[in-house]
Structures are given as C-alpha cells and as structure tokens.
Design a protein around this nucleic acid. Structure first.
Lengths: 345, 345
DNA sequence: GCTTGACATGCAACCGGTTGCATTACATTC
DNA sequence: GAATGTAATGCAACCGGTTGCATGTCAAGC
C-alpha cells in the first residue's frame, strides 16, 4: 500500500506527519511523543515543550483512528432518530450535540426513516466506531435493542425497556390537563389523532387520553395519521369532522397543524367551531391560530440522554435508570368553548 | 491494556471476536478471513462460504477502525451546519444522509452555532476520521477553508470560494420575481430584512433585491434580523412599520414568519395592509396566511453536495465545480396590492 | 512425465498510535 | 563513595485489520 504520495501532484507537504516523524525530528522516542500529548504529566516540562514545538512546526495532529485502535476509546457517539425533518427532533439533536461537544465527543447522526431494518443497518455501521449510542424513538424490537445494549452503553429516548437506561418524556400529566381543559370548555366527544403504533409516545398518549376521558365521562374515538406528518394530519380532517366530535388531541404538533389546515379547507373555524390540541410544543406560537399544546421540553431529552450515556461510558452505572421528563399544558388560541349546536350529539 | 473481559459479568461471549479468532475457528489464515470480507473474488467460493459461516456463528463483524487505519479509508463523511434547528437544514441534512447512506458511508453531524471558532474546532475533530466534508453555510474564513480543502475532499454549500467545489442555491431569479411581483401589486417602497453579514446567501439576496428594485424604481431599506430567527423577525416588525414601507422580503422563511407575528401584534393585517415574502420555502403553507416565498429546493443541495463529495473522493475531480441550484417564486397569500393610503409616501 | 502458468492461500510487514516493563540518570542517604 | 530510591525515557509488543510477495497446488501443454 502506498498512500497520498501526492494525490494530484500540486500540494507539497500534504502528507500528514506521523508520530515517528515528530519523534525523529525532536530526537526522542515515539513513546515520548505519544506521552507528550496524552499524558504530559509523565514527562519533564522541558521535554513536553520541545516535542510540542516540533509537532506544531510539522503540523502534527495525533491520529484519532490509530489512537482508537489501540485504546478502544473512539471519542464518538451515535444518535439515531426516526426522522430528522420532524420538528420534534432538531432541538433534541442540537441539545445532544452540545452536550457531546462539551465532553469532546463527535456525534454520528442516523436517520431511520421510521424503518426498523434501516435502523438496524445504521446501528451496525456505527457500533464499531462509537463508545455509546442514543436511540430516539427507536422502532427496533426489544430483542435487538437488548443485544446492542450488551455491546455498548446505550440510552433510549421515548422507549421504555426494563433494564435499559432510558429517558421518557412523560406527556401523561399534560394530556390529562388537556382533557380537563376540554371538558371544562364543554366538549363531550373528542378524537385522538394517533401516530405510529410502534411508538411508545403514541401508546402513552393514547392511553392517557382514554383514561382521563373515561374518568370525566367523555367519549373518545381514534383516527390515525400515519406516518405522523402535516399531510396525514390534514387528510384526517374529513373523517374527524364527519365523526361529529368537537375537539381533537393530536399525536404531535405537526399533525395538529395539518389538522388545522384540513379544517380550514373544510370551512371549520378553529377555535370557534372546533378545538385542537397538539403535543410536544415544538411549533410554539407559529401556527395560526397559536396552538394549545402539551409542552414537553424535548431539547432536555437530548441533553439528559447524552449526559446519562456519558456517565454510563465512564463506568458509573448505578443500576437501572428511568429518567422521566415532565410535561404541562400550554393554553393558546386553538381551543375554545364547545359549539352549542353540536352539544349533546 | 485489557478490555471488556466481562463488563457486568452477565453476558458470556460479550467480547467482540477478532479476525484471528475467526481464522483459528475456520482453519485458515487471517489474510484469508480478511479477503473473505473485503475481496471475496480472490478466494474459492467454498472458502468464502465456510469463513462467513464461522464468522456468523461467532458474531464477527470487521472492525471499521482497524480497517481504516490500514487502508486510510474510513467510510465516514462530516456535515457541518450553522444551526440544526433552523428549518432550512433538516431537509438538507436528511437528503445528505440518504445519499451518504446509499454509498455505505456514516455521517458525522456538526453544529457550528454560527460561530467560526466552534466550526473550526469541529472540523479539527472530524478531519482525522472522515474521507470528506461538507460545510453548509460555513462561517469560516476563506483561508481556513482552503487549508482544510488541501487535506480532504471538501464541498461547500452556499459559500462561493473559487477553486473549491461548491453548490449554490441561486435565489437571485426568485428574488427578482418577488420584486417584480411586488412592483406589479403597486408597492414602491420595500424593506429587506437581512440575515448574517458573513452569509453568502444573505449577500446574494440583498444584492438581488437592490439590483432589481433599482431596475424598477423601487426604494429599499435594510433592516437587520440577527441571528436570523423567528424572534428577531418578530422584533423587526416595529422598525419596519415605522419606516413606512408597504412590503418586506425576509432573509428566510423563519424571519418572515416572525415578522408576520410581529405585524399581527401591531394590528397590521397581512396581506391587506402589508405584504411579506419569505425565502427558502421550508415552511410551506403552514404559516398563516400561507407565505409567498422564494422556493429553493434545499434538500437537493444536500443531495448534490454529497454526490459531488463522493465523486471527488473517488478521484474523479474534473476541474472546478460550481453547481447552481435554481429558484422560483411561489405566490401564496401573504402578498397583496399595496394599500392606497400609504401609496406615494 | 516434466515444464509452465494460473490460481488459491499463507507469511509477515505495515498502518499510527499506546503502554507495561526495563533501563538509565540523577539525587539522597549513610 | 557505594547503596538505594525515584523520576524520566526508551524498548518492543500490541490493537485488528490489509496487502505485496512468496509459496504451494493442480491442470493444461508439449
């Protein structure tokens, strides 16, 4: 093998210097150069200074890959999400990155597209070169996840598997508040616009809706919006209006926004003749009308997940961790009193 | 060094098998195992089958890091963006990923937060373990970018540096159409709500606005929204209304959306008494009123950039590449005739 | 039946670092 | 001044693959 002797023939010193070259140039052994970078406290100050000077002049930077091979520490983590383009994820990704960054780690990002096979493929590609992984809204089955967890530290977001560290955005309290809010406004018949069946969040929200509605004597129907998106939310509008309900709670904000667009197209006014509640609070006040939604600080989930991963990587695994993040209802302008004409069927 | 002898003490064969173990178990040399995976055509079909069977049983997967060390091919690329949470980027990231995925590459994602120093740090961390990088909306100065480009194949998005492969979303035609559109509607005095000064896109848009406005005899003022976001857009509303203009073109959709919110708060109706045009078309029809905007298929930029990177990595560098992506105006409902009372000052 | 060549496989060096252990140099103590 | 201890550095093996070259095998060709 012969590498970049001069790939193109224009760059002169384009060859990246190695530890041996620095060693020769500064008259010490390779071990000393290595130590000058990774454990300087073992060396004389003078030696460290001298080596680093030479290294600087040569433009030497320790090769991460070589280092990873011999130490087993790669300095990388992987984050896999189900859909980068869903507004729920960007803030989460950003927060996760920030946290990883502070720890000097690089992050691989994977996009599973809601497809378990694709997710499995990504894990396979990442796992050999990372020290840990975060799976957000994983669509993998439990067995696979458990297997990966034996190979590397692994943290789940919004997936509840016993024995595996996980951070869960607990939207139940927010959803309960939403139901209470709607009940107070006089709604007696509502719809839950549901997301992916394999989604833990969806199951959790759907159950919370059922439970709270029952407690208050409301009737609930479920209408699917799959995969969850603006478009599927919009398309669900017809069915929802036809069902005679006066309010809907959507799986997430995107679906809620789509639903509002669909309602507008059917000349149903929000909140005058229909109320809509979202979930996640990632669209803030940017919808029209501003969306009443269950707020769950999703950025925190990314931050916490990486934090837990770090502590797990550093061996500080103190038993099972199931970190819950709270939620609450934010009332804006997409909910209002139930329309009279519809009341009582 | 002694690794994962049994981290936890529950999993038995949790040690990841190496090429040597597979070699021993299947009675061939390490070289043969290596070839069974990387160059099977050199071996007998029977040998390949046998080796792979054993490997499967043992759960062997070639170690990417070790492979990278000896071949120099890492199978990774890096994508650095200025702000993951800006809706312009997620579709771009998604498309870039998809393309990289098809080529079997893993992608590192970096978030520079609009900060050159941070961006430089990220490049430094990535460059040793990737075969190429894509810098989207880079805030690095030209010198740094050139230096990195000598070390690795590098593709820029929305940054125009001679001699470096770049893909540019050319919003000038769309902006020109927007100005024409506004002029036809009777607007004579408009504002450009500008983004980051170091942004190539911003310079390009600002210039296009100036040029076209001049051509049609419109007056233009510039109002900053920095960094570009919903909030800075909203805050710019007051100043814009006070200036007496009847329409505004915003640096991007997010700023436009914020501006509309700010106008609503001031009881200025869009489009009745004020017209707003966005840029990027990443919010689609999800704003209220649906936003008239300069559409630029930003996802394509990600796809094309990775495509160019791939061909550059494979040595097919055929001179300088400056790939332009077109744009056009999408007229929705945030623009309308100039209000009478304001006409002529 | 021996030469020739093609093909399959093995040997061993190498990629660029890290690290346990040995060695050396130097200061301290008696 | 020799013995002892300690701190700084070097030696060489190792991480887990890849690959140029040598070797071995077998069939075709003369």
């Amino acid at each position: 093998m012969k590498r970049d002797s001069d790939s193109g023939g224009e760059r002169r010193p384009s060859v990246v210097p190695t530890i041996s070259q620095v060693a020769k140039a500064s008259g010490v052994s390779r071990a000393t150069v290595s130590r000058a970078f990774s454990r300087p406290e073992m060396l004389t100050e003078a030696t460290v200074r001298r080596v680093k000077e030479v290294a600087d002049k040569l433009g030497y930077v320790p090769n991460q890959v070589a280092r990873a091979l011999s130490t087993g520490r790669h300095g990388n983590v992987a984050l896999i999400v189900s859909d980068v383009a869903n507004p729920f994820f960007p803030p989460l990704i950003r927060a996760a990155q920030l946290r990883a960054d502070q720890a000097g780690l690089c992050v691989f990002l994977g996009n599973s597209d809601e497809d378990p096979a694709r997710e499995e493929l990504l894990v396979g590609r990442f796992i050999g070169q990372v020290e840990g992984l975060v799976l957000a809204s994983s669509r993998l089955d439990e067995e696979h996840i458990r297997r990966h967890a034996t190979r590397r530290p692994l943290v789940l977001i919004n997936r509840d598997i016993e024995g595996i560290t996980r951070v869960l955005i607990d939207t139940a309290p927010g959803v309960a508040a939403a139901i209470a809010h709607l009940a107070e406004l006089g709604h007696r018949h509502i719809a839950y616009v549901s997301g992916p069946t394999t989604s833990w969040s969806n199951q959790q929200r759907r159950n919370a809706v059922r439970r709270e509605a029952e407690k208050r004597g409301l009737k609930v129907i479920a209408v699917p919006a799959r995969p969850p998106s603006y478009d599927t939310g919009r398309l669900a509008a017809t069915q929802i209006v036809a069902s005679g309900v006066t309010a809907a709670i959507a799986f997430d904000d995107l679906v809620a926004q789509g639903l509002m667009a669909g309602l507008a197209a059917l000349d149903v006014e929000v909140p005058k003749s229909f109320s809509v509640v979202g979930c996640d609070d990632v669209l803030g006040e940017t919808t029209y009308p501003p969306l009443t939604t269950v707020s769950a600080r999703c950025a925190d989930a990314g931050d916490v997940a990486v934090g837990l991963l770090l502590s797990q990587m550093n061996g500080g695994v103190s038993g099972e961790i199931r970190h819950k993040l709270n939620s609450h209802l934010v009332i804006r302008a997409s909910t209002g009193p139930a329309p009279m004409k519809r009341r009582g069927r």
